[in-house]
Design a protein around this nucleic acid. Structure first.
Length: 568
RNA sequence: GAGCCGGUAGCUCAGUCGGCAGAGCAACGGACUUUUAAUCCGUGGGUCGCGGGUUCGACUCCCGCCCGGCUCACCA
């Protein structure tokens, strides 16, 4: 804790001015800005002005361009403009952190230019001294002697404040100067106006210290970079880094849109056990915990699948669950021990229906969350306009190896050699199923930029999927690949209890042969199938990975608020 | 689990060949009533991740450990 801040808090406490119970705001900061800032639809314009300041930002320069009357506008350009010189700049008008900004600007020699002031009048409305109460964290402070500027921020946005000694009175003005630090959470009452440079600003008539920050804030220009601190103290990341706020707002939007879309389709949302007697429904190692009263081990679920299908047996024909799965495995850029999964099941659909629905779901997500069908990920374009391409599992393998399905399913020795040759470790001990899986993983997966479906998987990789109606060696299963990552896995569900038992038994054999992740037998689930599960199709979508793609980040920890880290 | 990289002021980062620990921001004092990475003048601030070793002398070289990142392995 910083000593000077503690002293200020002491004074506030002595005067009964700290930690009030309530401060009534008239709206959020973001709402105020939205009301006085008209949407701009990236139209092409040319502006004339003098360069006041140039700051280098990632991928170019952020320029403050000013007209003869002092009205300012931001310009993002790749050109190196010199300070104090006049330019004619042509680019796309948009908003940068809420402020009007000319994007991708290039300097030109001739042509008509619009006045900065006119553009700002058109899109930045006059707040006309409207009275508001706002609260937020003070993130910047610029003292000018008898007046003082700052910025106040919350999760919805940022707004400038202006404190004038004339307006506030000598005593309150001195209080602010002496007791307030950058980082404190403050409440303000005042009138909205625009400064000479055109920025929406709250002229403060009164303020209240709502809580003090006893630690200094991260550096204002470079932000908080230390990834370890960003993950362990995510609140600092959210305060300091706009990008982090954007990602988690996007994640929230993705989740609420998924709920909306599924609800519209007649699904009901359900919750099934996280603590399970048998951890089954996926190939993974579970976390084990102990229940004192029941005097037994319980497993954290690795998948909700078998419970959701019990609900289909029960007559809930369209169910989904959006929740956490837990897998006791390695941690890396695409794996966190707890992760969020959407699973949904539909009676009387098959996997063809699911593919169609998946396209619709993705299209709708892109439309509502991203605002278009195209995104750039790792420098490459992804286009989610349906229909997505479909590739058959074994055709992909054949294209890579020249070997057909029979080779992979029948010639175990040949497959083992092939796996060894392409550098798969422990190729001589892996089970048949694992070998096929690995070879596909190594040879094919990375190239599935997609979005695309891989369809018709080998049966021995899919113990819960129904046999393919055209080929008994295959199952009716597909995976959705985007950017070389598996985003969704789905199949026509196996609903024959006898066959399901056989498949579980085959898994137990795999387990005996050394595959620790082979699926566990679930007798209770088989009994449910014996009561009759209608023809059903089900799908799982990894929400974290989906958000990674939509947010354009390549580590899962960037989309999980508090990723699992080693204890300090 | 293995390899590589990193950990220096509250934050972002420099630190040469082994020779007194540095800058910017933040803090503190002062000037400034439309600033916005404000500006100008001045001041204070360090367990150099932790523990050993080599050396007259270690942020720097060596060994071990901790934490993180990336790659690989494992794993949907």
């Amino acid at each position: 804790m910083e000593e000077s801040r503690l002293k200020k808090l002491q004074v506030l406490k002595e005067r009964g001015l700290s930690y009030p119970y309530k401060f009534k705001t008239s709206s959020t900061i973001g709402d105020v800005r939205k009301r006085f800032e008209k949407d701009v639809e990236y139209k092409h314009i040319t502006l004339k002005g003098t360069v006041k300041r140039v700051s280098s930002v990632e991928d170019g320069y952020l320029v403050r361009l000013v007209d003869s009357r002092g009205v300012e506008i931001l310009v993002l350009t790749k050109e190196e403009l010199s300070q104090g010189k006049e330019y004619k700049l042509s680019g796309l008008l948009g908003r940068y952190e809420g402020k009007l900004c000319l994007f991708s600007a290039v300097s030109i020699d001739s042509g008509e230019a619009v006045q900065i002031e006119d553009i700002k009048k058109e899109y930045d409305l006059d707040p006309n001294f409207e009275e508001v109460s706002l609260a937020g964290r003070l993130v910047a402070l610029r003292s000018m002697g008898k007046a003082l500027f700052g910025h106040v921020q919350d999760g919805t946005g940022k707004i400038q404040i202006y404190l004038k000694r004339d307006v506030l009175g000598d005593e309150r003005f001195r209080d602010f100067e002496e007791l307030v630090d950058v980082g404190d959470v403050l409440g303000f009452r005042g009138k909205l106006f625009r400064t000479n440079t055109g920025e929406l600003t709250l002229e403060v008539e009164d303020f209240l210290v709502l809580t003090k920050s006893l630690h200094p804030m991260p550096e204002k220009w470079h932000g908080l970079k230390d990834v370890e601190v960003r993950y362990r103290q995510r609140y600092l990341d959210l305060i300091a880094n706009e990008e982090a706020r954007k990602i988690f707002l996007l994640r929230s939007k993705v989740i609420s849109q998924i709920r909306r879309i599924l609800d519209m389709e007649g699904f009901i949302e359900v919750e099934t056990p996280t603590l399970q007697q048998v951890a089954s429904g996926a190939n993974a190692k579970p976390f084990i915990t102990y229940h004192n009263y029941l005097e037994q081990n319980l497993y954290l679920r690795i998948a909700p699948e078998l419970y959701l299908k019990r609900l289909i047996v029960g007559g809930f024909n369209r169910v989904y669950e959006l929740g956490k799965n837990f897998r006791n495995e390695g941690v890396d850029t695409t794996h966190n021990p707890e992760f969020t999964m959407l699973e949904f099941y539909v009676a009387y659909w098959d996997y063809e229906d699911l593919m169609e629905f998946t396209e619709k779901l993705m299209e709708e997500l892109l439309r509502t969350v991203v605002g278009g069908m195209r995104i750039t990920y790792k420098g490459r374009e992804l286009d989610f306009t349906p229909p997505f391409r479909r590739y058959s599992y074994f055709e992909l393998l054949e294209k890579k190896t020249g070997k057909g399905m029979d080779f992979f399913l029948k010639d175990l020795e040949g497959l083992r050699n092939l796996a060894g040759n392409i550098g798969i470790p422990k190729a001589d001990t892996l089970t048949h199923a694992k070998l096929i899986d690995k070879v596909f993983d190594v040879l094919v997966e990375d190239e599935l930029w997609g979005p695309c479906f891989v369809v018709d998987f080998p049966k021995l990789l899919s113990p819960l999927a129904k046999s393919h109606r055209k080929n008994p060696e295959l199952v009716e299963r597909f995976e959705l690949f985007v950017a070389g990552k598996e985003l969704a896995n789905a199949y026509t569900e196996l609903n024959d209890p006898f066959e399901q038992r056989e498949r579980f038994l085959a898994q137990l054999k795999e387990r005996e042969m050394g595959d620790e992740e082979a699926m566990q037998m679930d007798e209770d689930f088989i009994r449910a199938l014996e009561y009759g599960m209608p023809p059903t199709a089900g799908e799982g979508i990894g929400i974290d990975r989906l958000v990674m793609v939509l947010a354009g980040v390549d580590s899962i920890r960037e989309v999980i608020l508090f990723p699992t880290l080693r204890q300090r």
